[in-house]
């Protein structure tokens, strides 16, 4: 029984990170309508910025981390403005945008490699035995992750549901044309969704860097899991993406109860494929089905 609660705890920890990535990704996708692989690079930049400010320069965490998130946010907005926006006008933009986002991802990863070198880095926080909660062993930092993520998500949910800007975002993601007719500034929406999404990625990067460690190539698996979670949850719908993240996290961790550990990554992709087969609009998706499949 203790094993089960441990696996669930693990699932929640992993799921929190996936959900953060998925939420950010989904938020951007809902407005921009393309799969932005460079989102993974934003995650890495968030992590390394935090490392730079807190560990190398030596600022206290409560200063370093918000600045790191700001850096990630800025990066996401910049990339969108310089590389993606101009391509949005093209006729065959989907392929071009996908490729451009891959290119930016590679570019940023290489720059990080050049600046920080290839060695694995860590914050070197003291290691202590975890607390026993309901049979599961969780460290304080992991507890912080499990609590912070939902707090952030509730904040986002409130933002989307209650504030004017949030409603405008949702309207734009539903139907850009009508939203524009209603007087919503689409460019502002893009700006906000990109910024917010990137901030989430930056936060995810910092949490992972603290809890585990950092290396320049950490972005690819993060964006893939985020993508998967976003689709499984229901593309274009941020709360759905969040739930998708937790779903994937739990599935992976419960899955390796039976399967050899080497197949863990494959689990989320098998789930992805199953969803694409039978329910491409995702778990919680609603009317987006016709955009996904026939």
């Amino acid at each position: 029984m203790a094993v089960l609660s441990q696996l669930i705890a693990n699932g929640l920890i992993a799921g929190s990170i996936y959900a953060l990535m998925a939420a950010g990704f989904s938020m951007m996708f809902s407005i921009q309508r393309f799969m932005n692989i460079a989102h993974g690079a934003t995650y890495v930049v968030g992590a390394f910025s935090a490392y730079l400010f807190a560990k190398i320069i030596g600022w206290p965490f409560w200063i370093a981390f918000p600045i790191a998130i700001a850096v990630a946010t800025l990066l996401g907005i910049l990339i969108n403005h310089i590389v993606f926006e101009p391509l949005q006008k093209e006729k065959d933009k989907n392929l071009a945008l996908l490729l451009a986002s891959f290119g930016m991802f590679l570019l940023i990863e290489s720059i990080i490699l050049m600046i920080f070198g290839a060695d694995v880095k860590s914050f070197g926080l003291p290691v202590e035995r975890g607390m026993d909660i309901l049979g599961a062993i969780i460290t304080p930092l992991q507890l912080i992750i499990i609590i912070t993520a939902p707090v952030v998500f509730i904040g986002i949910w409130l933002f989307l549901k209650k504030t004017l800007v949030g409603k405008a975002l949702r309207a734009t993601s539903d139907n850009t044309v009508i939203a524009a007719t209603m007087g919503i500034n689409i460019r502002a929406m893009t700006f906000i969704s990109t910024g917010l999404g990137s901030a989430l990625a930056g936060l995810a990067g910092i949490l992972v860097a603290l809890e585990q460690n950092l290396e320049h190539s950490m972005g690819m698996s993060a964006i893939l899991k985020g993508l998967t979670a976003a689709i499984v949850g229901g593309i274009g719908n941020v709360p759905a993406a969040i739930l998708g993240g937790y779903l994937i996290g739990l599935a992976e961790n419960l899955g390796i109860w039976y399967l050899p550990s080497g197949y863990k990554d494959a689990i989320s992709f098998v789930i992805l494929i199953i969803f694409l087969l039978f329910r491409p609009q995702g778990f919680f998706g609603m009317k987006k089905r016709e955009e996904v499949a026939e």
Partner: peptide
């Protein structure tokens, strides 16, 4: 032997199974 792919940085599942 328990194998872990390079992108997989979470050993807790396996550790949970080994706990007792």
């Amino acid at each position: 032997r328990h194998r872990f792919q390079s992108g997989d940085t979470d050993f807790r599942g396996t550790l949970a199974k080994l706990k007792n």
